[in-house]
Amino acid sequence: MNQTRHTLRLTGSGPTKEKAFATAIGQVQSAVGKRTDGVSFRVEPLDLEVVSAVEHRWTERFLGLLFPRTRRRFEITLRIDVQVASLDLDTLDFALREERLSPLQHALHMR
Rank of each mutant, 00 (worst) to 15 (best):
P103I: 07
T59I: 01
I80F: 00
V54K: 15
F74C: 12
G14M: 10
P45C: 03
Q83P: 00
V32K: 05
T7I: 04
T59V: 02
P15E: 13
E18M: 07
F94M: 06
S102P: 00
R73L: 13
H106P: 01
L104N: 02
S13K: 10
Q29M: 08
R71G: 03
A95S: 13
G14Y: 09
S102V: 02
S102L: 05
V39P: 01
E60W: 02
H56K: 10
K34N: 12
L65H: 01
N2W: 00
S13P: 05
D81W: 11
S30F: 03
R57I: 13
T4A: 05
R35D: 05
H56P: 00
T36L: 02
Q3S: 07
K19F: 04
R9E: 06
W58R: 10
L10Y: 14
P45H: 03
Q105T: 13
R72T: 13
F67E: 02
G38A: 03
D88Y: 03
G12Y: 10
I76K: 06
H6Q: 11
D81G: 12
R79V: 00
A107F: 07
D37I: 11
L66R: 04
G33C: 11
R79E: 08
T23N: 15
Q105V: 10
D88G: 05
R42Q: 10
R111W: 12
D88T: 08
Q27I: 03
V28D: 01
R69F: 03
L87W: 00
T4I: 07
A53Q: 15
S52W: 09
L89C: 04
T36H: 01
P45G: 04
G12V: 07
H109C: 10
E49W: 03
G33L: 12
A20F: 13
V51A: 03
R97V: 08
L104K: 06
D90S: 15
G64N: 00
G12S: 12
R97T: 09
T7L: 02
M1Q: 02
Q29W: 03
R72G: 02
E18H: 03
E60L: 06
T4Q: 10
L89F: 09
L63W: 00
L92H: 10
W58C: 07
H106F: 06
H109G: 15
A20G: 11
G38N: 04
S102D: 05
T91N: 08
R79T: 01
V84H: 08
H106C: 04
L96H: 14
W58F: 06
Q105D: 15
L65F: 07
L10M: 14
R61G: 00
Q83T: 09
S86H: 06
M110C: 01
V50I: 11
V39Y: 10
I80D: 00
E44S: 09
I80P: 01
L89D: 08
H109N: 15
L65W: 03
V39Q: 11
Q3A: 07
D47T: 04
